[in-house]
């Protein structure tokens, strides 16, 4: 048993070394409840959909891409996968929250992303400003992987099963080897 622990530990160390490497991510909790996602979808439709499509959800941008290019110098990107393209797990959603809340009003400038071509989509004057930024981040996170909840639900059963199977196979292996002479 000691040997097995050693084998597993030695082989897992590099994995943990990798995990330790993450950039700075704003410390905000993204509520991913169904209500937050629903509210976030409304925020998207009101504040983002003008320029940004979400093609895997069937949303088209309200203004044509060329018109957007003329005013901002770039075609605003599709947002379907944005939350997954900007970070692992919910880091992308936190990134989106940080981006939306880092505009200073006069002159319009983003403190965290100074070169961004996008004008502030949410108004700081709005009493629900922070909430809206969080909700739309939650919605984008959901949209990037709508099957995530199904995945975690199924995962619990699969892992529970694997633990039982592994324990049984381990016990069987112990039994099988019990009679084998130490020397030979």
């Amino acid at each position: 048993m000691k040997k097995i622990v050693a084998v597993v530990a030695l082989t897992l160390i590099p994995i943990y070394a990798m995990a330790a490497e993450r950039g700075p991510i704003p410390d905000v909790k993204i509520d991913v409840s169904d209500e937050a996602i629903k509210r976030g979808e409304e925020v998207y439709k009101k504040a983002c959909k003008v320029c940004h499509s979400m093609k895997y959800l069937g949303y088209k941008a309200s203004i044509p891409a060329e018109a957007a290019r003329k005013s901002f110098g770039k075609v605003p990107p599709d947002l379907s996968l944005m939350a997954k393209a900007r970070g692992k797990d919910d880091e992308g959603a936190k990134y989106i929250y940080a981006l939306l809340t880092s505009y200073v009003n006069t002159p319009e400038k983003n403190t965290v992303f100074p070169n961004i071509a996008m004008p502030p989509p949410l108004s700081k004057a709005d009493p629900e400003f922070e909430q809206k930024a969080r909700d739309v981040a939650a919605f984008l996170l959901y949209a990037a992987e709508p099957t995530a909840k199904e995945r975690e639900r199924l995962g619990r059963y699969v892992l529970a099963y694997m633990v039982v199977l592994t324990a049984l196979l381990y016990a069987l292996n112990r039994k099988v080897w019990r009679g084998v002479k130490k020397k030979g």
């Binding site: 199924l154 995962g155 699969v158 892992l159 694997m162 592994t166 196979l169 292996n173």
Partner: peptide, 20 residues
């Protein structure tokens, strides 16, 4: 049995990453 139980162990870790 020795191979199977070890595969099962490592697949548990693998499936953890796949699902979570």
């Amino acid at each position: 049995t020795k191979d199977l139980w070890f595969i099962s162990l490592i697949f548990t870790v693998y499936l953890y990453f796949v699902f979570f």
